[in-house]
């Protein structure tokens, strides 16, 4: 798994003092497991973005989804911890399988966890909820 590549650098602090990433190695392992399981169960491609989205978070998140290799079958969970906003973006095929009300439920669970300061828990919960709903019959 690629978390082996991430372990060496993720708790380091880059020269300007900004942490290299929001997750510890153990949390990255959980995230990778959740992503792989979500992909496997649903057949869609899930991705998680943690970072600034700017003041207009919705267009920014949609622009990120467009950059993925297969955006029609992808789901993006974009989290901006500074602005405290989470955006779930689906398109075409993934939007058909995950209606907006399901995404709203997942977003609600995620914000509940994020409000308590639990970034990894909220992200994994959102992934599991969406994967469960999009499960291939």
């Amino acid at each position: 798994m690629a978390t082996g590549d991430l372990t060496a650098q993720d708790t380091a602090v880059s020269p300007n003092g900004v942490p290299d990433g929001p997750f510890t190695p153990r949390q990255l392992f959980r995230l990778d497991e959740a992503l792989s399981a979500a992909d496997r169960e649903s057949g869609l491609t899930f991705s998680v973005y943690v970072g600034p989205l700017g003041t207009d978070s919705r267009p920014a998140a949609e622009a990120l989804l467009d950059r993925l290799p297969d955006p029609a079958r992808s789901v993006l969970l974009a989290v901006d911890p500074d602005q405290r906003v989470v955006e779930i973006v689906t398109a075409a095929e993934s939007a058909r399988r995950l209606p907006d009300r399901i995404c709203a439920l997942a977003a609600l669970s995620m914000t509940a966890a994020f409000g308590g300061g639990d970034l990894i828990g909220g992200t994994v919960t959102g992934l599991r909820m969406l994967a469960d709903q999009a499960r291939l019959a």
């Binding site: 798994m1 690629a2 978390t3 993720d10 708790t11 880059s14 900004v18 942490p19 290299d20 990433g21 929001p22 997750f23 510890t24 995230l31 990778d32 992503l35 792989s36 979500a38 992909d39 491609t45 899930f46 991705s47 998680v48 973005y49 943690v50 970072g51 600034p52 990120l64 993925l68 290799p69 911890p81 500074d82 405290r84 994020f114 409000g115 300061g117 970034l119």
Partner: peptide, 26 residues
């Protein structure tokens, strides 16, 4: 002592943006 700083909502949380995909898609 060497963990990543704890995230506290409302306080500034500067972090380099990261974008994850499952390993097989990479």
């Amino acid at each position: 002592a060497h963990r990543s700083p704890r995230y506290r909502p409302g306080r500034p949380f500067p972090v380099r943006p990261v974008w994850f995909l499952a390993a097989r898609h990479a």
